[in-house]
Every structure is written in C-alpha cells, then in structure tokens.
Amino acid sequence: MKRIRSRTISERIGGFVREWSVPRQVAGQSSATKAAESSMSRGLRPRLEEADTVGTNICPYCAVGCAQLMYAKDGRVIHVEGDPRSPINQGTLCPKGAATLGLMTMPDRIDKVLYRAPHSDRWEEKPMDWAMDRIAHLVKRTRDETFVHKLPDGTIVNHTLGLGSLGGATLDNEENYLIKKLFSGGLGMVWIENQARV
C-alpha cells in the first residue's frame, strides 16, 4: 500500500516537473520555441476561431469614436476588440470600450420597452411600435402647447422652449446635420446640444 501511494506521489511530482516550463527553460530551451507550453496550453484555442461573422462598430461610450471589431457566432456576439485599421484608436480600447461585450450580454440589461403610467407603482412591458407612437404623440403635443410664433413686440421667432435635444457622442456629422434640420427647422427647438461637447 505504501509503495503504491509513494509511486503515485512520485508520478505526480514527475508529471508536474515535466509540465512545468521552468526546468525546460533552465535547460536552455528558448521561450520562443515551445518551452513554455504545457499539455493543457497546447489544447487551448482562441475564442475568435469560433466566430462565423466579424462586423465593425463604433464604441458607444464617449466622443472619441474608437472603432471596434465584433465577433459573433450563431448571431450572438462572443468577443469585442479594437479595430487596428482605425486611425483613431489603432486597435486599442480603453477599459470602458473593452467592456462593451459585458454591456451587450449581461443578463440584467433591459432589452424591451418598459412603461410606468403616471401615478402607477409598477412597470408594464409594451411593444416598440407603441413606444415610438407615444413619443411622437408627446413631442407633437408639447410642441403645439409651447410653440411661440411671435414675441410680444411682433418679432417672428417660430420656436418652442418646451423641448430640447441632447445627441449622443457617437453620432456622425451627417446624423447631427439631420437632427439639427429636423429639430430646429421642423420642430422649432432652440436647445440642441451634443454629449460630445458637454
């Protein structure tokens, strides 16, 4: 019994020494060769090999606009990294940008419309079409109730101070141009700002 037990311990120690990379490196094997490999590390494969689709994205966090590569498998994102082709971030991401995968896949992320009626104590799930129609209705109603055609001195202003817009930092110039035209020209908004300038 003692012999079997001691053999097992010696086999374990021998196996550990064979797997441990330090003795191979001390013996003169270069870490550029396979001196640092173990049987476990030889079996590891990068997660990106599983991806069947690679798309591009702009990081949603700030005004810098870092480019990202999004790796997906079966329609689900499995990895996010910086896009090395971008002149802005050249493949790097800050900690917030590197956490984009967690933002997209965390189980607590709300991915449906929740509505709480005035004076209600609970949230209701609503369809997206309902939410878009409600937003349009409330914007029109607020604009109609607060629209000023002329000031008391007769100056024509055609504006409303009852609505405002705060754009996101990842909107491009074309999107900001359209927002400005729609909100100031179409709706008469005066307060139009962008998070990139705040």
Results as ranks from 00 to 15, higher is better:
L101I: 07
G102H: 11
Q90W: 04
H159I: 04
F147S: 01
L93D: 05
C94W: 03
G167W: 01
N176C: 10
L187K: 04
G154P: 03
K140Q: 12
N176Q: 09
P87N: 08
G186N: 09
I110W: 06
G167V: 00
F183S: 15
D111M: 08
M128S: 13
S120V: 01
P84K: 07
P118Q: 13
H119R: 11
V148A: 03
I156W: 12
S120F: 04
D108C: 05
R141D: 14
A99M: 06
D121W: 08
N158V: 00
K150E: 15
D129L: 12
P107R: 10
L161W: 11
V113P: 02
V190N: 04
A117P: 07
P152N: 07
H137W: 11
F183R: 00
K112D: 09
N158R: 09
R134F: 10
G167F: 02
W123K: 06
H137S: 12
P127S: 13
K96Q: 09
D129I: 08
V190M: 11
L182A: 15
T142N: 07
H119W: 12
P152E: 03
D108H: 15
P127W: 10
G168I: 00
R134E: 14
G188N: 02
R109N: 03
W123M: 06
T105Y: 04
L182E: 15
I110Q: 13
D144H: 06
M104D: 07
T160W: 00
P107W: 03
D144L: 04
T146K: 11
D133C: 03
V190K: 06
G91P: 02
L161V: 14
L101Y: 06
W123S: 01
S86N: 09
G186Q: 06
T170L: 11
R116D: 02
K140A: 10
A99R: 03
D108Y: 11
M189S: 00
E175Q: 13
R109F: 05
G164F: 02
A98P: 00
L178Y: 15
I88F: 14
L166S: 13
K126C: 08
M104K: 05
M104W: 13
L161H: 15
M132P: 00
L101Q: 05
